[in-house]
């Protein structure tokens, strides 16, 4: 539920921010400046979708807004599926998704769907700090999360039952992990689900036998992020460098979608995001730049 609250407060904050900017800058503005800015640079766009991508969109909007005070970028972090649903319904200009758009979602949209890769995100597999296990292979991860391996001693740990944590099925992180690590098999029935990255981190910090997964940006020193090995390769630490080089196996693209080529403000916003400045922001909020 923390997620819901943070979503709501995020929406609120972004609305307040937008309102504040309009009011704050409105005072100093005069007609000349407005005319100079041109019609393209006033108005508002809606950006809706993945909570994973929200920090990026938020960071871009802050700088973009400072440079173009007449523009409102309204951001709602509601989940990848919701963002794409909003794109289908025509209630958002840009959809954020931490996964690829599905074919059946694409078919519901009239017109061509344009994909913008805005950054990369790596998922880290986290365990308790005192867990003696040094690394896991993708195959072992799959067996652990599907419930085939249930004891830590089978993967080189101590004799204790594995507590599997997953995320709610509404999270893009859940779908991506299921797709890439579980190869679309189902999570173990007794897997507990955490409502947010923070709830996941909190559980794993306190429970010696727990295992879970979070975005690389959410890993801190309170938990242990395990190196993961792809088939036939040696274990790779989950770091930004390894994710960027493609050596680390659990990396995903963070996307934004528009119907047709982005136009007007949406285009300027995305252009800014894909520029060096925009990509600096991607790195700042903990993801991996693509330029």
């Amino acid at each position: 539920m923390l997620k819901k609250w943070s979503r709501m407060s995020l929406t609120l904050v972004s609305l307040l921010l937008a309102a504040g900017l309009v009011v704050g800058c409105g005072n100093g503005d005069n007609k000349e400046q407005r005319q100079q800015n041109g019609s393209e640079f006033s108005g508002s766009i809606e950006v809706n979708g993945s909570t994973t991508v929200t920090p990026i969109a938020q960071g871009w909007a802050e700088t973009f807004n400072a440079e173009n005070p007449e523009v409102d970028v309204v951001i709602s972090g509601t989940g990848s599926g919701n963002g794409i649903a909003a794109l289908i319904n025509g209630t958002t200009d840009i959809a954020m998704a931490s996964r690829e758009i599905k074919d059946d979602e694409k078919s519901q949209i009239q017109g061509e769907v344009k994909e913008y890769v805005v950054g990369l995100d790596a998922l880290a597999v986290t365990v308790h700090k005192d867990n003696p296990v040094q690394s896991l292979s993708l195959a072992q991860l799959k067996d652990i999360f599907t419930g085939k391996i249930t004891n830590w001693k089978d993967v080189g740990g101590s004799d204790a039952k594995i507590l599997v944590y997953t995320r709610d099925s509404s999270s893009g992180t859940y779908e991506y992990f299921k797709e890439s690590v579980l190869e679309d098999e189902e999570f173990a029935g007794n897997a507990r689900s955490a409502a947010s990255n923070a709830a996941m981190a909190n559980s794993i910090k306190g429970e010696e036998t727990a295992i879970g997964y979070v975005g690389l940006a959410f890993v801190d020193s309170s938990v242990k992020a395990l190196p993961v090995s792809a088939e036939g390769k040696s274990p790779v630490e989950p770091t930004v460098e390894n994710a960027k080089s493609g050596e680390y196996p659990i990396v995903r693209e963070l996307n934004m979608y528009t119907v047709g080529e982005a136009e007007g403000i949406a285009k300027d916003y995305l252009d800014f995001g894909l520029s060096t400045d925009g990509q600096d922001i991607v790195e700042e909020v903990g993801y991996i730049r693509i330029d």
Binding site: M1, T78, S170
Partner: peptide, 10 residues
Amino acid sequence: IAAEMGETVQ
């Protein structure tokens, strides 16, 4: 209901 409603298509 609370955890999953956010992601469903109406």
